[in-house]
Structures are given as structure tokens and as C-alpha cells.
Design a binder for these strands. Structure first.
Lengths: 114, 114
DNA sequence: ATAGATCGCTACTCTTTTCGTAGCAAGCGG
DNA sequence: CCGCTTGCTACGAAAAGAGTAGCGATCTAT
């Protein structure tokens, strides 16, 4: 994000992530969606648009403060947008969700093992 | 996590996540890997085992306190284990990483657009 | 039109999480 | 034995989040 560096480093596994070498896409992404409720929000917007209050109810213990902060961040990142019918995913957001979606099944299998 | 509830609800997109209905696998997972550095740690352990200090260096600004906390959590979750050659992913951890891996490519495309 | 409910969101205080640094016990090399 | 790295804990400061209250705008029913 405008860090001035000419090249974006390839963020393969094993490459340093977050911190020392900032600006790597995977780092930026982890920093964005690795915050409280961020993934929960994406998950809840996946199937349909939601109002602020609805989203709040679905993210039970999320205070309106954080919820609004996350929504701002996700909107700034171009993943979420505000529409006439509430908040919804952008095309980018939908693409990201597609990548995230298998986590649902993985989590279920994992929970059985736990 | 031992919430005593008899049934684990199906965590499809659109279902309430985190909070009101606790105990859903996807919620537990989001709560676990949606904390600072958690995904960064998994990412850095993906290709090889790492020592504590090495991991710390790769997660630049992560303090040893948080790093150790995350490692404990991830170990308790059965995703990370401590070996003779440092920390590494368990089989479960590797499976999770496989699901997470496409995020790397997605993040690169996304960064170009940003 | 008007009273009431609901909406998106901000303000504010209190608690939890994370940061950042210092440092200790244990292992290893020379 | 001495210096060096390693895993990890302690602790105070800063940042993030929770929880509650409530304001102006809109929607709903009468």
C-alpha cells in the first residue's frame, strides 16, 4: 500500500511474514482479516447483504464500535461495500470468500477430532 | 471447546458466527486463527520447522509474549507441535495450511488491484 | 400527520490484548 | 570456564475491544 517499494515480494510460505518486511500482500491480508470479527463478517455477508444491526446480531459479542471499524477497514480494502440493502461483498470480497469457504468444512472435521 | 452442547451446528455461510451461538467449529477456528500472528505463524511453519527465535525474527514486530501465547494456543488446538528441531506443524496443521495456502496467490492478485 | 419503533452509528468508560524491553536459566563451543 | 545463543517469563505502557447509552434519521402504523 503505497510503501514506495518498486517490487512486491513473492509471499511464499517460508518467507518472512509480517513485521520486518512489511508490505507483502499476504502480510497485509493477514493483518486485515486476522483481526477480530473480520472473517466472521465476511462469512456472514457471503450469502446475502446484511444491515448493520443484523450483522451485529450475528456477531453476537461484537460491539458496534469494532463492527464499524472492521466494516470501514474492509470497505477501504475493497472487500465490502455499502448498498441500498445494507452491507455486502464486492466482487473481490466474493473471490476472497471462495478461497476462505473450504475452512468451513475443514473446521467441522477438525472439531470432531478435537 | 467443551461447551457441553450436544450438537455441533453446521457452519454454512449465512449462519450466525461467533458470539450468540458459540461452539460452532468455524467460530472456534476464526477465534483461534483470527488473532494476531496466528496465521503468520502457520505460514512460516509451513515449509520447515523453526526455532522460537527464528519464528520471532520472521514475525518481526511480534513480542515474545504474544508469540509464546499463540504457540501455546496453536499447540493446544493440535495444529502446531514442538519437536527436536523447533516448532512445526502437525498433520492437522498441515491440512489447515493446505486450505490456507491459496490465500497467498489471492493476496498477490489483490495487491495489484489495490 | 404523528407517535413510536427501528436504524446506522458515535461517545464514553472499563477490561483485555498486545507491545517493547529487560533479563534469567539452560545448552553449546572453544 | 567464558562468552554466545536459545527458549521463555516479567512487567509497565500502549492499543484494541467490550459494553452501554444515546442521538439523529428513517420507517410503520394509526
Amino acid at each position: 500500500m503505497a510503501d514506495g517499494s518498486s517490487r512486491i515480494k513473492i509471499p511464499r510460505p517460508g518467507e518472512p511474514v509480517q513485521g520486518s518486511q512489511t508490505g507483502q500482500p499476504i502480510m497485509v491480508l493477514f493483518d486485515l482479516i486476522g483481526r477480530r470479527w473480520a472473517m466472521g463478517i465476511l462469512w456472514n455477508l457471503a450469502d446475502q447483504n446484511r444491515t448493520f444491526r443484523d450483522l451485529q446480531a450475528r456477531c453476537g459479542s461484537a460491539s458496534p464500535t469494532v463492527l464499524n471499524t472492521r466494516l470501514k477497514e474492509l470497505r477501504a480494502a475493497g472487500l465490502v461495500e455499502k448498498t441500498a440493502t445494507g452491507y455486502g461483498l464486492t466482487n473481490d470480497g466474493r473471490k476472497l470468500f471462495k478461497v476462505l469457504e473450504p475452512l468451513g468444512n475443514w473446521a467441522m472435521d477438525w472439531a470432531k477430532r478435537l
